[in-house]
Simulated assay, not measured.
Amino acid sequence: MTQTVATIPESELLDGEMKSAFLPDGTRIALFHINGGYYATQDTCTHENASLNDEGTVDGDRVTCTWHYCEFSIVTGEALNSPCSEPLQTYPVKVIDGVLHVVC
């Protein structure tokens, strides 16, 4: 069953930034504002379970986990270098009345 979950106001996420939010089941996600668009991925690195929001850096359309420098596409979730091979789960984001909503 698909649902749309309100997360944070659009105004709280500046271009180039990342913030975390939680889905109703307790899953922590990372929200990104890049190049005028909004994206959401799982917050946990697929290599060693580090929080991307706590341990990661954003550079353009990529997020890097600083534990082992795994790099992921924010747009597709694709793992872009070793030692990571598993992609991040991604979620569609909609802006509704100035609030970011994640479709999960």
Results as ranks from 00 to 15, higher is better:
Glu12Pro: 08
Gln42Pro: 00
Glu86Gly: 08
Met1Val: 07
Gln42Leu: 04
Val95Ser: 10
Thr57Leu: 15
Glu86Ala: 14
Leu100Lys: 06
Asp59Lys: 15
Gly77Asn: 06
Arg28Cys: 10
Phe22Gln: 10
Ser73Phe: 03
Glu86Phe: 08
Cys104Leu: 12
Asp59Ala: 15
Asn81Met: 05
Arg62Leu: 07
Thr2Asp: 06
Asp15Tyr: 10
Lys94Glu: 14
Trp67Lys: 10
Thr44Gln: 09
Val103Asn: 14
Asn35Leu: 12
Arg28Ala: 15
Ser73Glu: 03
Met18Ser: 03
Thr76Asp: 08
Thr64Arg: 08
Glu86Tyr: 10
Ser73Tyr: 05
Asp25Ser: 04
Gly37Phe: 05
Cys84Ala: 15
Gly60Lys: 03
Ala30Gln: 04
Arg62Met: 05
Val5Phe: 12
Ala50Met: 02
Thr46Cys: 05
Pro83Glu: 01
Val102Phe: 13
Lys94Ala: 14
Arg62Phe: 02
Gln89Gly: 13
Val99Ile: 10
Gly56Ala: 11
Pro87Lys: 00
Pro9Tyr: 00
Ser85Tyr: 07
Glu10Thr: 10
Leu13Pro: 15
Val95Cys: 12
His47Glu: 00
Gln89Asp: 14
Ile74Glu: 01
Ser11Met: 06
Ser51Met: 09
Glu78Arg: 13
Val5Trp: 04
Leu80Asp: 01
Gly26Gln: 02
Asn49Val: 00
Ala79Ser: 12
Glu71Leu: 06
Ser51His: 08
Asp15Pro: 12
Glu55Tyr: 06
Leu13Lys: 13
Asp54Ser: 04
Ser85Ala: 11
Ile96Glu: 13
Gln89Asn: 14
Leu23Glu: 00
Thr7Lys: 09
Asp54Gly: 01
Met1Cys: 11
